[in-house]
């Protein structure tokens, strides 16, 4: 082999190997990528608040087993109204807990009331942190999946936040990288097109919207199931303003 061919050939092989390696390593599906366990000022038990009820314990008396199935949005009220989900104000916790005398002497609740009595905010640590140049809009995702498509709240929040209802303090379960975001945005989603009168025809109804948000142009032909599909929003500026 000529010497001047050797180098490029070797380089090409290496690059190919490296890219293949990267491609398999890069999570492009919703496979889990567990984040670190983060120490919080109060070990908030999500499983107790949002977890499923224990069917054999209808009174929910055993705190280690049953949850109360509280809707995520009951506490995280800002998520459906704003870009940022925010953290519930302390007032929210106290609103219920001042009327639950049975757990009042539990260490975590005692700690909670210490903050309340001092009127001090709890310094929670951020579990799902995006870089500053990424603008993720909670409101928009909730509008689409929960309000328009009527999917269950815990399922929808779980797309990104994982099975929080089984955790104490939240821990990141998904990679939340750009590639991971795109793995969903680039799927073929079933959509509906409004006809001339502005009424959607066939498919899964998208609510009363007769515009595409920023969805890409739908496929020309319907798929085998007779559905019209389109890929999700793909514009750079949606997240990188």
């Amino acid at each position: 082999m000529h010497r001047y061919l050797r180098f490029p050939a070797m380089l090409a092989c290496f690059l190919m190997a490296v890219t293949c390696h990267a491609a398999t390593d890069q999570p492009l599906t919703t496979e889990d990528a567990l984040g670190p366990q983060i120490q919080q000022p109060i070990e908030f038990p999500h499983y107790r608040h949002a977890g499923n009820r224990n069917p054999v314990d209808p009174t929910n008396s055993d705190p280690t087993k049953g949850g109360m199935e509280i809707n995520c949005q009951y506490c995280h009220t800002y998520a459906r109204r704003s870009l940022t989900a925010g953290i519930p104000p302390l007032q929210k916790c106290i609103g219920c807990h001042q009327n639950i005398p049975t757990v009042r002497d539990k260490p975590r609740i005692v700690e909670l009331f210490k903050y309340w009595d001092a009127k001090k905010a709890i310094p929670w640590k951020k579990v799902h942190d995006l870089p500053d140049f990424v603008r993720f809009n909670h409101e928009r995702h909730i509008k689409r999946f929960i309000e328009q498509q009527g999917r269950p709240v815990q399922e929808v929040c779980g797309y990104c936040h994982g099975q929080v209802k089984e955790m104490t303090t939240a821990r990141r379960q998904k990679p939340i990288t750009m590639g991971w975001c795109r793995s969903c945005h680039m799927k073929d989603h079933v959509v509906v097109v409004a006809n001339k009168d502005g009424i959607p025809e066939g498919g899964t109804p998208l609510g009363k919207q007769d515009y595409w948000y920023t969805f890409q142009k739908p496929a020309e032909k319907r798929n085998a199931a007779g559905e019209l599909t389109a890929k999700g929003p793909n514009d750079c500026w949606l997240c990188h303003k």
Binding site: V18, T19, H21, A22, A23, D25, Q26, G35, P36, I38, Q39, Y78, R81, S82, L83, T84, G86, I87, P88, P89, L90, Q91, Y115, W116, K119, K120, A121, I122, P123, W124, K125, K126, V127, H128, D129, L130, P131, R172, P175, I176, T177, M178, G179
Partner: peptide, 29 residues
Amino acid sequence: SGCGNTSIEDGKETIVSYVQAKDYVIPGV
């Protein structure tokens, strides 16, 4: 190829909530 997995800093920043929020206050709005 490793880019994209590196910039998330879980547990580094503190996220401070309100103690009592005014009705019109929505974080981000």
